[in-house]
Write a protein that binds this DNA or RNA. Structure first.
Length: 273
DNA sequence: GCATTACCCTGAAAGC
DNA sequence: TGCTTTCAGGGTAATG
């Protein structure tokens, strides 16, 4: 399940692999992803050159020249592979973008929760999915000072708040669980009850967890692989996620699991208050 | 604004 | 062994 560290890993690899390449062809499976791929998609990519690759939350933004943006979201199970054109087409391959040097990018997504779109603009602010994103946790503005008033004005549970991409862009279930553990905050705590010190701790925990995860090229369970087809390694660093009934690394109490808004939360009831 | 629920989808795991 | 059911989850939309 690709979250921000996995997307950041991909973005870094793709910058090295495809920036400067000219798109000569686009194959589409014709199957809908989260929503159908627009009929204009292939034409907007074809003939353009990749100028830059950016990440916004869990989205990849591929800047094209002349000015256009190719927007990619991997959903739950999306993968992007860079290299030679595949000899046989995987049944979950939904797009292949070919370059003038005979290499290509292949988009696979078994569950089809992802998104591929192209816009005739270079301004992310004109793209609905991007415009509505909250603050990126690794951006300079992500601080206790910024977060504090938002939390004070919210009666929601902190887990739900942190998963809300309109508030904080890039966190998913894994890194919210891990960040709350590091910050020693219970996932069901109401936002407005967090103290100033806890808010600062949470900000530090989120940034620590994300940076460590990026250094480990993300987390791989069954789905995520980087663009070379290699799994990430942050799953070896997980303290609570998918560790139900195992001992807490801090206090040895068993890790618990609870349901919050149809998602699993993993936490230590002894350490996290 | 927020909680809840349903939906999209497939593969893995569990249950029989 | 093989079939069926359940579960997982990111984002969105409808509803209350």
């Amino acid at each position: 399940m690709p979250e921000m560290p996995e997307i950041e890993t991909l973005a870094r690899q793709l910058r090295a692999a495809v920036v400067g390449k000219r798109i000569t062809g686009v194959y589409l499976s014709g199957m809908a992803l989260r929503r159908p791929i627009a009929s204009t998609f292939a034409a907007r990519l074809r003939g353009r050159t990749i100028r830059k690759i950016r990440r916004c939350g869990k989205y990849l933004l591929v800047e094209l020249e002349p000015g256009a943006l190719w927007v990619i979201h991997l959903g739950m199970s999306g993968r992007i592979l860079a290299g030679s054109p595949p000899k046989s087409r995987d049944r979950h391959t939904h797009a292949i973008v070919q370059f003038s040097d005979s290499t290509c990018l292949e988009y696979r997504d078994p569950r089809r929760f992802g998104l591929l779109a192209a816009y005739e603009t270079l301004k992310p602010g004109q793209i609905p999915e991007i415009r509505e994103l909250g603050k990126d946790p690794l951006s300079p503005g992500f601080s206790g000072r910024w977060l504090r008033p938002l939390l004070q004005n919210s009666g929601r549970e902190i887990k739900s708040f942190l998963l809300d991409q309109h508030k904080v862009a890039g966190l998913g279930n894994i890194y919210v669980c891990e960040s709350l553990f590091h910050a020693r905050i219970h996932p069901a705590r109401r936002c407005s009850t967090l103290t100033l010190e806890e808010t600062d701790r949470l900000v530090r925990a989120i940034r620590y967890v994300l940076r460590l995860a990026i250094r480990n090229r993300g987390t791989s369970f069954s789905d995520f692989m980087d663009s070379d087809g290699r799994p990430g390694e942050y799953q070896n660093c997980l303290k609570v996620f998918q560790r139900e009934r195992q001992k807490c690394v801090r206090c040895k109490a068993p890790i618990r699991r609870m349901r919050q808004g149809n998602r699993s939360s993993f936490y230590c009831a002894h350490c996290q208050k």
